[in-house]
Design a protein around this nucleic acid. Sequence first.
DNA 1: TACAAATTTCAGTAATTACTGAAATAACCG
DNA 2: CGGTTATTTCAGTAATTACTGAAATTTGTA
Lengths: 192, 192
Amino acid sequence: MNLSPMHQTFVLHFGEMGSRWGINRTVGQIYALLYLSARPLNADEICDSLGFSRSNVSMGLKELDSWNLIRLKHLPNDRRDHFTVPDDIWEIVRTLVEQRRKREIEPTLSMLRDVLVEKPSGKDEQFAQAKMHEMHDLIEMLTNWHTDMEKLETQRLVNLLKLGSKVYKLYEMKNNIRLLPGGKDKKKKDTR
Amino acid sequence: MNLSPMHQTFVLHFGEMGSRWGINRTVGQIYALLYLSARPLNADEICDSLGFSRSNVSMGLKELDSWNLIRLKHLPNDRRDHFTVPDDIWEIVRTLVEQRRKREIEPTLSMLRDVLVEKPSGKDEQFAQAKMHEMHDLIEMLTNWHTDMEKLETQRLVNLLKLGSKVYKLYEMKNNIRLLPGGKDKKKKDTR
DNA sequence: TACAAATTTCAGTAATTACTGAAATAACCG
DNA sequence: CGGTTATTTCAGTAATTACTGAAATTTGTA
């Protein structure tokens, strides 16, 4: 591996981290390298920097591409493919979340829906189905929330995140104002 | 494996999913089984249901325990350990997020902080450091947001999630009210 | 279309991770 | 204590996943 100590620390860390997410070391390292690079890199440069074989790098890039995490660039007078990550880190985050949703959440929801239409036979299945229902609803709620957040442009999303739970106070304020004249909401007496 | 088709579908799915998160098949399946069970199960029951060896189950339970995802129970007149998951699914979610934060986010932040105090030598390191800074700040922001959300009791959290981006409109409303008389905020003219 | 450069594929091998059974240890009970 | 049951550890093996080099394919160029 042929990198400055600073680069090396970062790259190795993301190699490690990759393993903890179903992504392998190579892929993690390639992405880390591209993330830190000021210019698009070609496959041979990646080989040199990380010490992987050409074919391994090729597969890693393919994997990253299937996650839609890298961008292919072509430089003038150079036939080789060059790769970058999106400039905007929020685009990266959005892609990551979107992909994990597609690959993990959607299949899970789909499996749950399938099982939930079956008729439970006996107490055990009834209990199990109730638990699956609970899980299904929770995941769906989080997914809906995410879909909704996804629509916000970045600056607004950031504002919202920075506000955090403070925003909840506004919500309660609004609710109280509405409630003052004797609104229709039921059981909202003490939400604290 | 000795399970109803319904249980089997769910258990196998979470075995699969486990692999995609650094968690292995055994661990995923054990957790799925416990999640669906109406009563605490002992290790031998888990062996029977899933067809793993006793030692494998023991290791799986140890792993789950290290994630704080299972609870040890003792039944009257039975020396054996019995295991459950928390009744409240939100407790499970909170634990999962908390643990991943501890195991993945914190080490990453710590690595980034270490690298960011070093003096960059040359353009490349300067660029790289800027990118790492950007990443650090983003992660920290998300972490702070999470810390904040964590404090909310579940019902409020659910309300907030269900509101989704609608809550942002309240925020803007509030801001506009403040701005009407000619507030001090700068450059907030058109946030849409 | 023929050649060269770039990239991908894939079979074989290396490395890692998962799993087992046997033995050791711990917990409980008379 | 001594015996019994429950649990964990761990060395060895099985299974899976990662990685390589050589060959095949694709892409671009004259």
